[in-house]
Nucleic acid binder design. Structure first.
Lengths: 88, 88, 88, 88
DNA sequence: CACTGGAAAATGCCGC
DNA sequence: GCGGCATTTTCCAGTG
């Protein structure tokens, strides 16, 4: 019974931590919505703004991807990728 | 030109604020993942955990919806929902 | 060439079947709209109707989720949920 | 009281008809998913298929739109659009 | 006719 | 690696 008691406490803790984080996430999502609304009020087209953000996200991912490929090449050549990162 | 300069600054600010918030959101999502992984390592079934969390979310949503329907009924009857809220 | 011919026919068939089903779906959606309009004409508040429908949907989802969680618990315990279902 | 009894029956009927139609809609949506899955099993790329379907939908809408503009022109000229439709 | 809210579609994630 | 599921995003209809 002690075990299940401990397990129960652990479970409770896990659930609570998750739900707390999800609330935080939701709060941030609401902040984002607010910014879009505010931008719209300032004459920006929300739809286009969203496109811009998603494009920049894709571009960032691609850069990362390219960086990963470069790292692969470098390590294939026996060179430490870190040397380049450090210089940049 | 000044106008477009201002608009550009505004745009930049909007985009940056959004991207910053989205990073925060992602960080939190990662924290959630971590908790699930940790729970799994402690012998919990992640699938069940997720179902429990989602069930609790639905229950919360139901309570909200019930309140919303009640408010609609009250306002349809010309009664201010606030009167009840205040009393509660 | 025969292959691509077959593939083309298959593709055509797939697209057509999907588009046909989507038309059916749209027709049903229109029927739903009609019912709301008719109900409104009979003095019902469409907004409340929609909320009621959505509340009932959430309630149904909750029941489903509860069953799903139970099934997961049972299978985690190595018990066949079917035994219970069959008895019911 | 008789009135509210009738209203209640009407309400019940409305809700039931809507829920029944939504179930039908869901069944059709499931059929669509099934077709995508089947197509995927036959070597088609589901993502591309979806793009094709949505493009065709947009094109159809545009054609309709253009047709509407044409009709507008024709009626502005005092000509019945139906004459063209019939001939087509 | 702009806005809010809800349905549908697309994407990404987890578990097998 | 794939299928299913949950989340997220997009779109559209209803409302004021």
């Amino acid at each position: 019974m002690t075990d299940t008691g401990i397990a129960k406490d652990q479970l409770k803790s896990v659930i609570e931590r998750i739900e707390h984080l999800e609330e935080e996430k939701k709060a941030i999502a609401d902040d984002v919505k607010e910014i879009y609304a505010e931008a719209k009020a300032n004459g920006f087209d929300a739809k286009i703004l969203r496109k811009v953000v998603s494009l920049r996200k894709i571009e960032a991912a691609e850069r990362e991807e390219q960086g990963a490929v470069l790292d692969l090449y470098l390590s294939a050549l026996g060179m430490a990728p870190d040397l380049f990162e450090a210089a940049a």
